[in-house]
């Protein structure tokens, strides 16, 4: 979608046009879902986050000020929703590993799924802001500068976080697969 069209669409939606908003949502749905899936690592959670984001988008489309690209704003929205969702989810966490394993097993790429789950777990255990940095740069393939704009931090912070993650991964390898982290 060309940015001009998209901006036009957003303005129409902000004015209260439901059709324009629907079009916008259909256009961005796959992006939202993809990022939510990368954040959660499984279907069910990703769908919940996606739904939350869609609703949030409906409620806050009026607050989009065209200061950044819509896609950056959307990333921020998904990240916030994902964090909200995880916070609400912590109250009733996946109690046992068996359930988790069976959930992953349903995914046809079972082994990859487990590996990915472990990485996501590691990223979750790091300090605030690390997971989204890693996902934006490594998974979505954005540059450090772009990620910095989305996360509203300095570019050097992004680089530093990625460096820290790299260090963690190395210590992980040396530490024989144990998931203790020093941060």
């Amino acid at each position: 979608m060309r940015p001009i069209d998209e901006n036009q669409l957003i303005r129409t939606a902000q004015a209260g046009n439901a059709a324009a908003f629907e079009q916008l949502l259909i256009d961005s749905y796959d992006r939202i879902y993809r990022f939510a899936y990368r954040w959660c690592g499984n279907h069910a959670d990703a769908e919940d986050v996606t739904q939350l984001t869609c609703i949030k988008l409906a409620q806050s489309i009026g607050q989009f000020r065209f200061e950044a690209a819509f896609s950056s704003w959307l990333y921020r929205l998904v990240i916030n929703c994902a964090k909200d969702w995880h916070r609400s989810q912590q109250r009733h966490q996946h109690g046992d590993l068996e359930q988790l394993a069976s959930e992953i097993h349903r995914d046809d790429r079972a082994e990859n799924g487990i590996y990915l789950q472990q990485i996501l777990q590691l990223l979750d255990s790091l300090a605030e802001g690390f997971k989204e940095t890693a996902l934006l740069v490594h998974a979505e393939g954005l540059t450090h500068a772009e990620a910095a704009i989305i996360l509203q931090v300095k570019e050097s912070t992004v680089s530093w976080r990625l460096h820290e993650i790299r260090k963690q991964l190395q210590s992980l390898q040396q530490g024989d697969g144990s998931w203790e982290v020093s941060l």
């Binding site: 939606a13 439901a18 259909i26 609703i55 890693a134 393939g141």
Partner: peptide, 27 residues
């Protein structure tokens, strides 16, 4: 990078419809 860039499966059509309907209602 390789792990994180795994292709994500396509969203389920019915879930998508449901989400869009919910968002439209919220809108």
């Amino acid at each position: 990078q390789q792990q994180l860039q795994q292709p994500t499966p396509a969203p389920a059509a019915d879930a998508k419809a449901r989400h869009i309907a919910a968002a439209m209602a919220a809108f």
